[in-house]
């Protein structure tokens, strides 16, 4: 879901007039209105001086737990693929109930790690720094 201080009427006009030209059939998720920034304030991303939300992005798991967040100032956009990658990397961890971990640069299909006494000092045997950049 997305949140800004704009009214629901402005959200509709933006979706009708511009976003639906970029995304077929318009934006599928709820575009929420946070006039006054009350939601933004509890998430710590509302800019009181400018009166707007900054670019805060929170990944929340099916239990409602925050697994990650990122905040950018307004002029720079986010990397959506990185958000997808992070969710994909959190999913096997959750499925394994924390017995598996997804190392730097992990993508679906890559090897997960099994943290434990046997792995101490041995990560270098099975995981190479180049794997973070693949």
């Amino acid at each position: 879901m997305s949140v800004s201080i704009d009214s629901i009427f402005v959200h509709k006009m933006w979706d009708d007039n511009e976003l639906s030209k970029m995304v077929e059939q318009g934006i599928p998720f709820p575009m929420l209105s946070d006039g006054g920034g009350r939601v933004g304030k509890i998430y710590g991303i509302y800019d009181e001086d400018a009166g707007v939300e900054t670019r805060g992005r929170f990944i929340i798991d099916p239990d409602g737990i925050i697994q990650g967040y990122e905040v950018l100032t307004p002029p720079v956009g986010r990397n959506v693929m990185e958000t997808f990658r992070q969710i994909q990397a959190f999913q096997p961890v959750r499925k394994s109930k924390g017995t598996q971990a997804t190392p730097s640069g992990w993508k679906p299909g890559k090897m997960t790690l099994k943290p434990g006494p046997d792995l101490v000092g041995k990560v270098c045997d099975i995981w190479k720094p180049s794997m973070a950049f693949e």
Binding site: S2, V3, I27, P30, R57, I60, T83, I87
Partner: peptide, 28 residues
């Protein structure tokens, strides 16, 4: 909020059981 032609009220807790990406941005 606004979603697919309708004005709605949405809660974060409506989405328990799903992964949620909550995105704030400066303005439409």
């Amino acid at each position: 909020g606004y979603q697919k032609g309708k004005f709605i009220n949405a809660s974060l807790s409506d989405y328990l059981g799903k992964w949620v990406v909550l995105c704030f941005y400066p303005g439409d």
